[in-house]
Every structure is written in C-alpha cells, then in structure tokens.
Simulated assay, not measured.
Amino acid sequence: MKNLGNSILLTLLLSAIGLLFCSLVSAQNKPKWYVTAGAGATTVRDFNATFSDLQYSVQEADASIDYQLKSKPGFLINGGAGFSGTFQQDGLLGWDVGLNVRSAGFGLTPELLDRKGELSDFYQDMLPEFGKTTNFRYWALHIPVSITYLPFEYIGFKFGADLYYQFSSNITDSEFPYGRLGKAMGLSYYTPKYEHPFQIGAHIGVFAPINERLRMDLDFFTDVTPRLKINPVTPTYDYEFREMGVRLNTRYYLK
C-alpha cells in the first residue's frame, strides 16, 4: 500500500513537470534560465513527537539505566539551476522548475538520565556512547516544482512540491543493529526504518525580486511521505518522522 501511494505521488509530480514542459512549446513568453545557491536548517521529527519522546529504560537485578535521545538540527546547503516563466502576459501567475544538488540532515545525542549499579555486558554492549553527537547527512538530487504569484512589485508568494533522489547510503542499513542510526539509538526497543532513496515533499514561501537578474527566496518545507519510521517493540504508537526546515536561496537569472 505504501509503495502504491509513493508511486501515485511520484506519477503526479512527474506529470506536472511534463505538463510544464509541454506548455513551453506553445508559450508566448520564453522561460528564463537561472542558477541558484542557498543554505538553511533541517530537523527530523513527527508532527506530535520528537526523538526525546523515545524513552529507554532497563532494569536488571540491582542495576538500572534510563536515557533519552536529543535531536539537533542540521545545516542545509544546495545549489543548481532551473527555469521559470509566466502563464500570462501580465506575469502575476507563474511556474518554476529546478534541479539542485542538496545536502541536509540532523544530529542525535544520547543523554544519560539515571544510572544505578552496573548492567551486565549483554546490555552494556547495546548502550550508545552518552554525550556523543552522531550526525546523519545525505546528498540528494532535488527537483522543486512551484507555482508563483507576484501581486506586488517586490514581494511574491510560492508553493509547490519537491522530489528527492538520495544517492547517499541508507542510515538504517549495513550495520547491526539497524544501521548507523540504530547504533546511535542503542538497545533494541525501537526499530528505525529510513525510507530510501525517493522522498516527496512540499514547500511554501515568499520571494523578493531585487532587480531583473537577482531574486531572494525564503521557503518552509516538509516531507509529505514519512522519511523515518520508528516502531516500538510493544506496539503502542508508531512514530513517523519527516524532515522539516527552512531555506534561504539566492537566484541569478541568465541572459
């Protein structure tokens, strides 16, 4: 069912891109090509929960330990090119398609809450290194598709969809247990599964044309489909984490 939903979303996004390309053939206004670069910040969380809501506690004879995970935002960088145009001569309503190389992620720090006695080696081997932050970053091809509206001379609005193809490794594969992410989380109370390599998201934002060549964009974005699913051993609530964040882009139109 999940694969079917992802396939439908991907088909719709690619269809929208195809329609924009087809409209170029008959468009009276030629598209404007541009290059872009930007930076921002991202985090991974559920709409109602964060990594801090995952509680780890184990008791063994006279020993016990409690700890939690703290998520830290990661920085985002991107750069690429694209083209944009308008649907009408007045230029109020337009469209935009880009192709970027993008890197983003998040950090995870296990923090000790309480310790009594010494656990056996069996549990000690499954504990993460407390106080150590592990960063999880990815590189991806990013295709944003936007509808733009410019009601004022220097302020416009935009919204649209994002398609990502990650060419970095899956953070829940390769290492035991559950990849690099599982190792940083510790124990085995929660099973993380990172969706890879495709992701579909959405964005909304504002933009400011500085002059005929230069434009600044401020976007807020989120995944539509969950990027990370975390399932507890005792099924109570399945966490579905999404990447969320903000980015500031500078755009330069070519001749």
Score class of each variant (00 low, 15 high):
D162A: 01
K2F: 12
L54E: 02
K193N: 13
A27D: 04
S64M: 13
F83E: 09
I8E: 03
A184I: 00
V97D: 07
Y67N: 03
Q59K: 11
K193R: 15
T36S: 14
Y189L: 14
F87G: 06
S7D: 09
P226A: 08
L248G: 08
N3R: 14
Y253P: 01
Y194L: 00
Y194K: 05
L127M: 06
S7R: 10
D173M: 09
V145Q: 01
S26H: 01
D90R: 08
M244C: 10
A37D: 10
L150F: 00
G201Q: 08
G105V: 00
L218A: 12
A41W: 04
G80E: 08
K116T: 14
A104Y: 07
Q59C: 05
R180I: 07
P151T: 01
E118Q: 13
F122A: 13
T148E: 05
S169W: 02
T134M: 00
F207V: 02
A16Q: 12
I147Q: 00
S103E: 03
D217W: 01
K183D: 09
F83Y: 12
R45D: 01
G182K: 05
S84V: 12
V97I: 15
L218C: 06
F83C: 11
G79A: 15
N135P: 00
G38F: 08
M1D: 07
L19N: 12
K183N: 10
Y123W: 15
P235V: 10
L150A: 12
D62F: 14
T42K: 04
T109G: 07
S168F: 09
L19K: 09
A63V: 06
N6S: 06
I17M: 10
D125K: 15
P110Y: 11
E243M: 09
N211Q: 05
V35Q: 09
K30Q: 11
F75W: 09
P192L: 03
G105P: 00
F167D: 11
Y138K: 11
A27L: 07
G156K: 03
L9N: 00
Y237E: 08
K255P: 15
T134W: 00
W33A: 14
N6Y: 12
D219Y: 02
A41I: 15
M216K: 03
Q166W: 02
L127R: 02
P177A: 09
V224C: 02
L181K: 04
I17N: 00
T42F: 06
L214H: 15
G80S: 13
R247M: 13
F122G: 02
A104F: 04
K70L: 11
R215L: 05
K2N: 11
